[in-house]
Amino acid sequence: MTGMFGSRKSGKQTPVALDQGPMASSALALSRRVLAIGIDGAAGFDSAQQVADAALRDHRHPDRAVQGIVSQHRKLAAKAGFVTGLGGFVTMVVAMPTNILGFYILTTRMVAAIAMVRGYDVRDERVRTAILLTLVGTDADDLLKRAGVVSSGRLAGLATRQLPAPALMVVNKAVGFRLVSQLGDKVFTKLGKGIPFAGGVLGAGLDVLLLNRIAASALHEFPAAGTRIGAAR
């Protein structure tokens, strides 16, 4: 069976270069778009800096600010998931691709805002790559390995390593590939949203569940300044 990153025979996977193949440019474009809008913002969509600043202003303490950021994005994800499934199967076919891309952008902003509150510079390409890797959860170590990057400590540790730009680009492409793969998985999972209203409730629940997992990963991967040294994954 041919997998996303190689062919599987007898349960073993043969690695292939992550930056090759007809989907390579599309995978990288997806990663770049998610990072650009999720971190830097767009018309009508606040940047991670704006979200972090507002959370610190409202809550006055980093830990409470982080909780506020997660709560804010949880509500936004629930609303988007509900609206996508509300109209049933017919409208879902049109709305789902936009919803899924929007979900990745939303969670990227959440993770970036958390990282900023905890003192990370999201302008650093290495930090941006670490943020992107949180979207794929437990697959992050595997993607780093396949890209030739040895994982040691939390993802935020990438910021302290002198990784060359080509290595970061390969990792970003790898994440893009994985996100494309997850698009198909999400479409299949969300077929249950074909029933009006009930589909909206299910959609909201699924999106919140996944966002909570990514939030938990972000809280672990981007520790506060006082807990970074010696921290292990």
Results as ranks from 00 to 15, higher is better:
residue 79 K to H: 05
residue 36 A to V: 05
residue 194 G to T: 00
residue 9 K to V: 10
residue 17 A to F: 15
residue 213 R to T: 02
residue 232 A to G: 05
residue 109 R to F: 00
residue 106 L to A: 01
residue 1 M to S: 13
residue 53 D to S: 06
residue 5 F to I: 09
residue 28 L to E: 10
residue 47 S to W: 04
residue 227 T to G: 02
residue 224 A to P: 04
residue 133 L to Q: 06
residue 49 Q to L: 09
residue 231 A to K: 13
residue 223 P to S: 02
residue 166 P to H: 12
residue 55 A to C: 07
residue 210 L to M: 01
residue 48 A to Y: 09
residue 14 T to W: 06
residue 124 D to R: 13
residue 22 P to I: 11
residue 50 Q to N: 06
residue 185 D to T: 05
residue 30 L to Q: 11
residue 100 I to N: 00
residue 85 G to D: 04
residue 201 V to H: 06
residue 168 L to K: 03
residue 86 L to F: 11
residue 81 G to I: 01
residue 156 A to W: 09
residue 112 A to V: 02
residue 29 A to M: 04
residue 45 F to H: 14
residue 196 P to W: 08
residue 97 P to Y: 14
residue 161 R to A: 00
residue 89 F to W: 11
residue 33 R to C: 09
residue 153 G to H: 03
residue 52 A to V: 03
residue 8 R to F: 11
residue 135 L to K: 05
residue 24 A to K: 14
residue 113 A to G: 10
residue 133 L to I: 03
residue 125 E to S: 08
residue 10 S to M: 14
residue 121 D to E: 13
residue 24 A to S: 08
residue 85 G to H: 03
residue 111 V to Q: 12
residue 61 H to Y: 06
residue 13 Q to H: 11
residue 87 G to I: 00
residue 164 P to Y: 04
residue 180 V to I: 05
residue 49 Q to W: 12
residue 80 A to Y: 03
residue 129 T to K: 07
residue 84 T to W: 08
residue 106 L to D: 02
residue 22 P to S: 14
residue 179 L to H: 03
residue 173 K to W: 01
residue 213 R to S: 06
residue 93 V to E: 12
residue 7 S to I: 13
residue 220 H to Y: 03
residue 188 F to N: 02
residue 226 G to I: 00
residue 215 A to H: 05
residue 113 A to R: 07
residue 41 G to W: 09
residue 229 I to F: 10
residue 224 A to V: 01
residue 102 G to Y: 13
residue 181 S to H: 11
residue 81 G to L: 11
residue 61 H to K: 07
residue 169 M to P: 00
residue 89 F to Y: 08
residue 217 S to Q: 12
residue 195 I to R: 12
residue 98 T to N: 09
residue 174 A to D: 00
residue 47 S to G: 13
residue 172 N to R: 15
residue 19 D to T: 05
residue 188 F to S: 06
residue 28 L to C: 08
residue 121 D to Y: 13
residue 30 L to S: 10
residue 200 G to V: 02
residue 40 D to E: 15
residue 199 G to Q: 08
residue 213 R to I: 04
residue 201 V to N: 05
residue 199 G to L: 03
residue 111 V to M: 14
residue 231 A to L: 09
residue 170 V to N: 05
residue 170 V to I: 14
residue 221 E to S: 05
residue 197 F to L: 13
residue 203 G to V: 01
residue 167 A to S: 13
residue 191 L to V: 01
residue 137 G to K: 11
residue 212 N to M: 02
residue 212 N to I: 01
residue 81 G to P: 00
residue 189 T to E: 12
residue 108 T to D: 11
residue 54 A to Y: 04
residue 60 R to A: 11
residue 7 S to L: 15
residue 206 L to D: 02
residue 203 G to K: 08
residue 82 F to S: 04
residue 87 G to D: 07
residue 93 V to L: 15
residue 223 P to Y: 08
residue 77 A to F: 02
residue 140 A to F: 06
residue 205 G to R: 12
residue 49 Q to R: 15
residue 106 L to I: 00
residue 197 F to Y: 07
residue 127 V to E: 15
residue 137 G to P: 01
residue 145 K to Y: 13
residue 209 L to R: 10
residue 169 M to K: 12
residue 223 P to L: 04
residue 217 S to K: 05
residue 69 I to W: 08
residue 206 L to F: 03
residue 145 K to W: 12
residue 52 A to H: 11
residue 185 D to N: 08
residue 231 A to T: 04
residue 129 T to R: 02
residue 151 S to T: 10
residue 39 I to M: 15
residue 57 R to A: 12
residue 98 T to M: 14
residue 217 S to V: 10
residue 138 T to W: 07
residue 61 H to S: 07
residue 114 I to M: 15
residue 230 G to T: 00
